[in-house]
C-alpha cells in the first residue's frame, strides 16, 4: 500500500468522452486503479479532489466528479486549459494516468441528512456538484427535495447533458437548465443562472444551497441567495486555486489563512465571507 504522500498511484483510463467541444473542451475520464489494494482502500466523499496527471508532464488538482455510491471507479471531467490538462486530453481508453488523493474536505453529507438540497452550477462548475447530486440521489430516502439548477453559455457548453432527463424522473427531484441566449428547440430557461434562481424562488427553510461556477456567477448567486434569506451557514461553495502538493506544504493555494487543498475546497459562506481573498 502506497503511503508516500507525493508518490502517485497508477490508474488506467477505462472510458473517455467529450462533454463539450471547442478550444476549451471538457473531456470526462472514467479511471480505475491498477493496484487492487489501492482500489479497495480508496474512499472519498462528494466535494473531494484528486491530483491527477501524467508521468513526465505533471499533475493537476481536479475535483472527483463521481459519487462513491456509483462504484469502484473514479470520474474526472477536465477542461483543456494548461500543460497538464492538454496532455490529459490526449488520453484514450487503456492509457495510464496517475492519481493521488483524495484531497480536501467533503460536503458535510451526514449533517445534511433530512434536508433539502439545491445545487446551483455554471459551466465546468457542475463537476464538483455532480458527486453530491449522485450521492443524494443514491440515498434519496435520507434527504429531502433535490433541486438541480445548471446553466452554461450555450446548450453545447452544458456538461453531463444526458444525465438530467433521467435525474428529473427521480422522486422529489427537479432539474432546471438554462443557457444565456436563445436557441432553437431549447425547451428550458434562457438567461443567467442567478436570474433563474430567483425565478425558482427556493425557500431557505431546511435547505442547503451549494453553488459552483465562474467567480462572477458565484458572486451574483450569493447575492441572490441572501435576497432569498438563506442564512450564511446554509450556503456552500467550493473554491479552486493553483496547487502543486495537495497536502498543505507548497504554499500557493491559500485564500487568506486557509489552504484550499486542506481546509477546503468546500466552504460555507459563513466561513468565507471574512476571508479576504476567497473570491479573488
Amino acid at each position: 500500500m502506497n503511503t508516500h504522500p507525493y508518490k502517485p498511484n497508477i490508474a488506467t483510463v477505462q472510458d473517455t468522452w467529450y462533454e463539450t467541444f471547442g478550444d476549451r473542451c471538457i473531456k470526462t475520464f472514467k479511471v480505475v486503479f491498477d493496484d487492487e489494494e489501492v482500489r479497495d482502500n480508496w474512499t472519498h466523499l462528494p466535494g473531494q479532489c484528486a491530483m491527477i496527471g501524467i508521468l513526465g508532464t505533471g499533475e493537476s488538482m481536479i475535483s472527483i466528479s463521481c459519487s462513491p455510491t456509483e462504484g469502484k471507479f473514479l470520474r474526472f471531467s477536465v477542461m483543456r486549459a494548461g500543460k497538464v490538462t492538454k496532455a490529459l486530453h490526449e488520453l484514450e481508453a487503456g492509457d495510464k494516468m496517475t492519481v493521488r488523493g483524495p484531497y480536501g474536505n467533503t460536503f458535510p453529507v451526514d449533517e445534511w441528512k433530512g434536508k433539502n438540497i439545491i445545487t446551483i452550477g455554471g459551466g465546468i462548475g457542475q463537476a464538483p456538484l455532480r458527486p453530491i447530486i449522485e450521492y443524494v440521489r443514491a440515498k434519496k430516502s435520507e434527504y429531502g427535495d433535490l433541486t438541480v439548477v445548471y446553466g452554461a453559455r450555450t446548450s453545447a457548453d452544458l456538461c453531463f447533458k444526458g444525465e438530467f432527463s433521467e435525474l428529473a424522473k427521480v422522486e422529489n427531484t427537479s432539474c432546471r437548465l438554462s443557457i444565456d441566449a436563445k436557441e432553437e428547440d431549447w425547451p428550458h430557461y434562457v438567461g443567467f443562472v442567478p436570474a433563474l434562481l430567483m425565478e425558482i424562488n427556493p425557500s431557505p427553510e431546511n435547505t442547503i444551497a451549494i453553488t459552483c461556477g465562474p467567480p462572477i456567477m458565484i458572486n451574483f448567486v450569493l447575492q441572490n441567495l441572501k435576497k432569498l434569506n438563506f442564512p450564511d451557514d446554509q450556503i456552500y461553495t467550493t473554491l479552486e486555486n493553483r496547487m502543486k502538493c495537495g497536502i498543505g506544504k507548497c504554499g500557493r493555494c491559500n485564500a487568506g489563512n486557509l489552504y484550499v487543498c486542506k481546509d477546503g475546497p468546500v466552504f460555507s459562506y459563513a466561513m468565507l465571507k471574512n476571508v479576504p481573498e476567497a473570491f479573488a
Partner: peptide, 24 residues
C-alpha cells in the same frame, strides 16, 4: 520561506519529478 513548485523533467529515457523553490 518554504514554498515550492513541482515539475517533471526528462533526460533521454530517464525522467524525474522534482521540487524547486518557488516564490509568491
Amino acid at each position: 520561506c518554504h514554498c515550492f513548485d513541482m515539475q517533471d523533467e526528462t533526460e533521454g529515457e530517464e525522467s524525474r519529478r522534482y521540487r524547486t523553490w518557488d516564490s509568491c
